[in-house]
Simulated assay, not measured.
Amino acid sequence: MDKKKFDYNLIRYLVVIVETGSMVSAAEVLNVAPSAISYAVKKLRAHYHDPLFTRRLNGIIPTALAMNLYGKFKAIDSDIIGALNVENVLHKFTRKIYIRCDPFIELWLTEQLLQRQLIPNDFGIEFRYFNLDNELRASKLRNKEVDIDIGLPLPGDRNLVARPLFDLDFTLICRDSHKSIGEFISREQLANEKYVAYGLSTYSTLLRTDTFDAIESRNVDPVIVSDSFLNLILAVTFEDMLIFCPARYVQFLKKIIPVREVKCEYIKKGNVKFVAHVHKQNIGNSAIEKIIDILKEKIQ
């Protein structure tokens, strides 16, 4: 393609395709036929001698060159829209941030983003892929299928950056009206009280690390084992049972369900580090930085 004959509409097309992650969605945002999107991509590929996008099950993945072009094209497109000072359909499109995290963080972060009106005003969020091994976690970040991965540190990867967040300590909670448990619980009582347990390998590993002695001392099996955070948390409000919970979120949970903390001084503290992993190309992204700043805040 002759540089002098470059179709500047292709700038907007590439920006929207990258932001929507789907050629079909891009066609809807731009109010054009899907064939127009396909034709635009064909012209861009011919010009840059690069595939730019690869197909996946639920959309497309931009290549490294496409992401590089996106950064440049986005600035150009914003300048054009600003100069025209016209309400454009692109103004109505909200950048979506993809986050992988555990259910506790998901619930708390959702409340924080809604409370601060960051969603839907500034961006949208989609939580995905919670229960992955380290290799898949890193792969999703490298492929831009996840923007922020919140959890235990991953092995070193030159494409990924780890941002320290907080120490994750565990404590016990029960319903407010639990009949046999007071403010504190002894090892002996804990060994015999009814409890529910996480089935997910991630939390099972964390609990083994943080609460090994207390768990091993139990004389009874869990009443319920589930991968569902919602099911377990609500179950302890129905019956006199205990559950281990990240201490960081106890005050938040107390605001929304009738539970209370049960103190147990013999549980070790501060030996599980949580970090936010992001792709190095996303460093400085305003939406991602806002979310990470919120995650670092001390919960009141």
Rank of each mutant, 00 (worst) to 15 (best):
K74Y: 14
L207I: 06
G82P: 00
D213M: 09
I267G: 12
G124R: 06
F104T: 02
N271P: 08
V89K: 04
I215A: 11
V278I: 14
A197P: 00
N271Y: 07
S22L: 03
R142V: 15
I294Y: 11
I291P: 04
D227M: 06
L132P: 01
C101L: 07
K72D: 12
K273R: 09
I292C: 11
R128N: 03
H277Y: 12
E111N: 13
I150S: 06
P246S: 07
S217H: 05
D293K: 02
L172C: 15
I288A: 06
L207W: 01
I60G: 05
I257Y: 07
F212V: 10
N159C: 13
I181M: 12
D167H: 00
Q300E: 09
L84C: 05
E183Y: 02
I125S: 02
R95V: 15
L230A: 00
Q300N: 10
V223M: 01
K42Y: 15
G71K: 14
L234G: 06
K42M: 15
L200T: 11
K194P: 13
D149C: 07
D157N: 11
T211C: 15
K140E: 07
S35K: 00
R158H: 11
I233Q: 09
V18G: 05
A64N: 11
R218Y: 08
I291W: 06
C174M: 10
A276E: 01
I291F: 04
H178E: 01
I299E: 02
E297C: 08
G182R: 03
R45S: 05
D77N: 07
D122M: 08
I37L: 11
N285V: 10
I97V: 15
L168V: 08
N9F: 06
N31E: 14
I97G: 01
R128W: 03
K255I: 08
M67L: 15
R218W: 10
L136N: 09
V86E: 12
Q251M: 06
G182K: 02
I288V: 15
A276N: 01
S217A: 07
E19D: 10
G21L: 05
D7P: 10
F170I: 05
N231K: 09
L234Y: 09
I181S: 06
S286E: 10
G124V: 12
G124H: 03
K263P: 02
G151A: 07
D169E: 02
P62F: 04
Y39L: 14
R175H: 15
R116D: 06
F229E: 14
L141E: 03
A138Y: 08
E188H: 04
N88P: 00
T202Q: 08
L30I: 05
N85V: 03
T211M: 11
L207N: 01
A247S: 15
F252S: 13
R158F: 15
I148M: 05
